[in-house]
């Protein structure tokens, strides 16, 4: 949850999505941040962060996609976050099915 409340966009939600690697987290960020938010009633920012539980050295560059959404109303927040989740699910499925290591593995199985 957002630490402080923005008076212009009082409804806020931060979604943290852990990925197996920094590379995948960064692919998701780059693929998702191209499209602008359609409504001026919503602002958002993406970042990549490292886990805060002390195991940072294995994932020094961070593997968590952080999506921070702020909106004027809860309804606008819900619409924007839902749309983010739908796109995120697509990005993750493409990663699961079509990343090069997965394809190589599939070829070996077949």
């Amino acid at each position: 949850m957002a630490a402080s409340i923005d008076p212009n966009f009082p409804c806020a939600l931060t979604v943290e999505v852990p990925f197996p690697t920094h590379r995948l987290a960064s692919v998701a960020l780059k693929a998702l941040q191209v499209d602008k938010e359609l409504s001026s009633l919503v602002t958002r920012s993406f970042a990549i962060s490292a886990p805060s539980d002390g195991v940072t050295d294995t994932n020094a560059k961070g593997n968590i996609l952080q999506a921070q959404y702020k909106a004027t109303t809860n309804r606008m927040l819900r619409v924007a976050v839902n749309s983010f989740m739908e796109s995120l699910a697509l990005v993750m499925e493409v990663m699961e099915e079509l990343d090069e290591d997965v394809l190589t593995l599939q070829d070996q199985v077949n």
């Binding site: 692919v27 693929a31 796109s87 697509l90 990005v91 493409v94 090069e100």
Partner: peptide, 15 residues
């Protein structure tokens, strides 16, 4: 359009 563009971008970045 946008849903396919998101997927195409992901492929472009992964590959």
């Amino acid at each position: 359009l946008q849903s396919v563009a998101v997927a195409a971008r992901t492929l472009s970045l992964l590959w």
